[in-house]
Design a protein around this nucleic acid. Structure first.
Lengths: 108, 108
DNA sequence: AAAAACGTCAACCGTTTGGTTGAATATGGC
DNA sequence: GCCATATTCAACCAAACGGTTGACGTTTTT
């Protein structure tokens, strides 16, 4: 299954979504509050949050009428490991990288 | 300028391009050789290589009639730093992160 | 009970993406 | 000079993306 890395990187490719992640770094937030600093509609932000949720980068829990958004740093670990394989190639954990190749890569 | 992270993450979001990066991890390769294991046209691979090049993830140098592709791990460092801010939040380099916020983030 | 607040859904729209094919442009070997 | 090799370009296509608006369903407040 190549999906996880696909969706995580695709989610991170949008600056609005990266900004949202950074906002959530400070504290959990309601959808409306996430949307407030942006100049786009609430529906657009709701979509962005859906993409972040499907990528596993955040979780959403509804309490009463407000839906709380929470950062989920675990999803970033897989991607982070992937990137370190290149960025810090000298410090690479070759076993982890091999396991990654087995599970994720299948060239054609 | 938010472009670098945008283009790097967008480039990484495609499994074909991630596979190409991994192939280049072993050695520099000519475009035709990169394309060989894939079931798509050479033109398609050429486009993928263009995207990786514009993202700074690889470089291409033409020698004779063959264009050599070379991994450029530096471009991954910025993105890697970005991700570690979340993934290993306990080990975060706060100074680097602040610098990142100054340069890259501008919420609206 | 009515109104306001919170959030999503559905339909739409223009742009980008990932692929195709066929022609074009070097460069190298005979 | 001629043909094969290596790569890109241009035009096209369907599907996905990022945004909008308006209607809708819940929950809270008054």
């Amino acid at each position: 299954m190549s999906a996880p890395l696909d969706t995580v990187f695709a989610a991170l490719a949008d600056p609005t979504r990266r900004t949202i992640l950074m906002m959530l770094l400070e504290d959990d937030m309601a959808v409306t509050d996430v949307a407030e600093p942006f100049e786009m509609s609430l529906a657009a932000i709701s979509k962005h949050l859906g993409i972040l949720t499907r990528a596993g980068l955040i979780s959403q829990e509804k309490r009463g009428r407000v839906k709380w958004c929470k950062l989920e740093p675990d999803a970033l670990r897989a991607a982070s490991v992937w990137m370190q394989s290149f960025g810090q190639f000298d410090q690479i954990d070759l076993d982890a990288f091999e396991r990654f190749l087995e599970g994720e890569l299948r060239p054609d």
